[in-house]
Design a protein around this nucleic acid. Sequence first.
DNA 1: TATTTAGTTTAAAATCATTCTAAACTACTT
DNA 2: AAGTAGTTTAGAATGATTTTAAACTAAATA
Lengths: 132, 132
Amino acid sequence: MKNIEKLRRVGLRPTKQRLIIADLLFNGPNRHFSAEDLQVEITSSGNYMSIGTVYNCLKKFKKCGLIKQVEYSKETAVFDTNTNHHHHFLNEETGQLIDFESDKLVLQNLPQIPKGFVNNGLEIIIKLKKNN
Amino acid sequence: MKNIEKLRRVGLRPTKQRLIIADLLFNGPNRHFSAEDLQVEITSSGNYMSIGTVYNCLKKFKKCGLIKQVEYSKETAVFDTNTNHHHHFLNEETGQLIDFESDKLVLQNLPQIPKGFVNNGLEIIIKLKKNN
DNA sequence: TATTTAGTTTAAAATCATTCTAAACTACTT
DNA sequence: AAGTAGTTTAGAATGATTTTAAACTAAATA
């Protein structure tokens, strides 16, 4: 599917800038990245975009379900092209994230949800340390 | 146990400032707080402390295992007096955290840990939404 | 007890990620 | 072709946190 269609389908005006970002994000494998990472890539691809626009665009993409934002990250927002339900390994030394699928996982005896609320998503982070 | 002992036991010099914070943190029930929250409390208790010192102190306390830092939080670091293993409910609307115990929880078919690494902690966040 | 010193606190400046602002621009509609 | 609503931009603003360098203080030593 062309990215211009992809944007139209979720109600986003396919501007030049959004298409530049869509081409970088949606034509390869899933990955994690920050707004700044992406800006560097945009520059490397021979384009230019203000950091404000990168943030605006990522926020819109997120709102429209084209990307997710990894919720645990402390300072730097980390975005993810993988919008399927999944969890993360986190290499604490480097900050690198690795996805793992949630479909085989078995969770039992989950705690009772506080009164007045419903479960709106369960996220697991498994922190990794080098052995030795 | 007196807080002055508590600090000495982990190798921290019991300065006036550290004792003020220890008195606020360790003489009541466990809770979550930010550096700024704590500074407000310090002020309310009739003391004064620069925000830099609050950060320094919390970092030392964390390093010595007196408190933990909740890892998922996005922008504001959230500290926690509860150093037992536990997980969190997160009210996404307000940012409020609620602990839940991990001892009854059953987790099966956890994914294989990437080669060269060991599991250094598993954290679960259950996001909450108001029902209706 | 006085002196030393290594660690601590402080105000203020610096940093870093992110958001805001207001003006210029552009995709889409009429 | 003109209008308008949404978008992009540079640069300023914000907010959390860290750094800096000087003043201070707890603990060790003389």
